[in-house]
Design a protein around this nucleic acid. Structure first.
Lengths: 337, 337
DNA sequence: TTGTATGCGTTATCAG
DNA sequence: CTGATAACGCATACAA
């Protein structure tokens, strides 16, 4: 009775029929009589039969598992992508194994190995900051396992990728500053290793050059967390020509920046405007004044990634190198005019 | 070569030995000669052999997977518990399947079914707000699968549980108010369905009665997100006897409360002190003034849960009904005297 | 319409 | 020290 989980064998035994008949009945195979099907279904319910996905996986060489590797799930953005991945995967009968690289290259490699060993049917990756060698990703593909990059993508490996309009988002932010009379726009930029940082930087730079504003190196500083955002903003405020606008690579950095501005007595947005990136609902709600930001469709990006991944499961290499770009939006709140 | 993943069969074939020898060599079985072992290991490396966990799972009736069901991973607390679970599980050769119930009872049931079908070796659950019927949890145990409750526990089902000092945390908060001369302490409480809400409420109530302060029903209102925290605080401020301190069931609610206080021109902490619960690093950093809060050891709770779960894998029922309580701490910042 | 046999990759038992 | 074989639970080609 409660001897672990019931199997098709148990159903077969109870009904005195063969396991193959049970298997087929459960799958609604046309060959099986309605009568048998009904009996099987009832017995299955009686025994609370749940198909053993492990056995199914072994048999059909499909685990119905997909792997997701993200840097850190604590970040709002990544947790929303997980929701998107999970929802779509579940809707297609897949489950998700989540791994965090903690921004560590070594850990990312371990994660890949673990997922491969678990025979996941596909892997979605958002690359860690530390990663500069990409052979572990190529390795996935060599095994014939579909791979999709999400947000933190990787140009060195040809794989379907899902990003948002990083460039356009940054462009919008900078344009907004310009159209409100700002000329001395600083950028708190992300690490060199990340493409998204470069894209955001480029969007910013292109707006400057479009408006014939010379790029000023002191205005472009590395900062991607609260503390560095705070610290680097203090330094910006020490410049002879202080900026009149700050575009930050993400919201928490923008929050650090706001803290510095507030402490130094600058009025936001009157003296200095600020725009973040990510539109984190907690951060944008809590800063004073409320942070304007570029909305990133995390849930949709996750969903789309899962969709592209599942589309490629079972197909032959080479995998397409399609890049899907999802829309970002400028959300104006109180740190902008 | 790149024909999917290598198996022990491939190694056996290459070395012209039997699969059983390979299997044993890989497991460092004492019967196998050092010479053979070395050859096998080398060939395994050459072929980049990774054991097929699915096959292993089927064979040994152990999937080396554990399931984690949390309400919503976007909350900082739950994402830190995931890290704890993941780290400990990985260290023991287990992987984690994460499911979000989205605070929905139906979805929680679906999650349980899915995990059972995946033949996870154990399940960690943080119960959804909506859940009042617990048969799906009992069901897990009936199947002989160990179950551990974490944070959002469930007294109706006897299972090992990991919580933090909800009562004591609330007690500390209220005591702190009292010891700084506050007498009109309000509580923004969580939903009735959650034990942690009750515990936090009780800690608060016991401090009142200890100090012979009569409980005042208008001071105890339901609120567990930013908007309700904001709204209910406005109502508290309309009372004839306004509170001089507010203890909130979580940090985001406290943040909503602070927003209301600020809008109405109350000084925090001089006029009204505020303490939250959870010690969310983003929220406590961003509110103005910075929010005092009760620190909850999320990572350790996750780790402990995984530890208790793995301890029970393979053991016979009945599972112990041990409850582990982890320490909370009062973190004083700027919303308290 | 149903049953038998086989194999997915691995490990354990039993022989040798 | 090593090999052949069965079994885990399921799905399918082939028989009947």
């Amino acid at each position: 009775m409660s001897k672990g989980q019931a199997t098709i064998k148990d159903i077969a035994k109870a009904l005195r029929i063969s396991v193959s008949t049970v298997s087929r009945a459960l799958h609604d195979h046309p060959d099986i009589s309605e009568k048998t099907k009904k009996a099987v279904r009832e017995e299955a319910r009686r025994l609370d039969y749940q198909p053993n996905l492990i056995a199914q996986g072994l048999r059909q060489q499909k685990s119905h598992l997909i792997g997701l590797i993200v840097p850190e799930i604590v970040h709002h953005f990544f947790s929303t992508t997980l929701s998107g991945v999970e929802d779509f995967a579940n809707s297609q009968g897949y489950h998700v194994m989540v791994c965090q690289s903690n921004e560590s290259y070594e850990r990312e490699k371990t994660n890949v190995k673990a997922l491969l060993s678990s025979r996941v049917d596909g892997i979605i990756v958002s690359v860690s900051k530390e990663t500069t060698d990409f052979s572990h990703f190529k390795h996935i593909q060599k095994r014939g396992i579909p791979l999709v990059f999400m947000d933190r993508i990787c140009n060195e490996v040809k794989a379907p990728s899902v990003v948002c309009q990083d460039y356009e988002g940054a462009y919008m932010a900078a344009e907004h500053f310009i159209s409100h009379g700002r000329r001395r726009i600083a950028h708190l930029r992300g690490p060199k290793s990340l493409l998204i940082s470069k894209q955001r930087l480029n969007g910013y730079l292109d707006v400057l050059s479009k408006h014939r504003i010379p790029k000023k190196d002191e205005y472009i500083v590395f900062a991607s967390d609260f503390e560095s955002g705070y610290r680097e903003t203090l330094r910006l405020l020490d410049l002879h020509e202080k900026p009149d606008a700050i575009f930050a690579v993400n919201d928490i950095t923008a929050a650090g920046s706001l803290r510095a501005l507030q402490e130094k007595g600058f009025r936001v947005p009157e003296d200095i405007s600020v725009i973040g990136f990510g539109d984190d609902p907690v951060i944008t709600k809590l800063t004073v004044p409320k942070l304007s930001s570029i909305y990133q469709p995390g849930y949709e990006m996750g969903k789309m990634s899962a969709q592209m991944l599942l589309k490629n499961i079972g197909v032959q290499e080479p995998f397409p190198h399609e890049i899907r770009v999802l829309k970002t939006e400028l959300k104006l709140r109180e740190t902008t005019l």
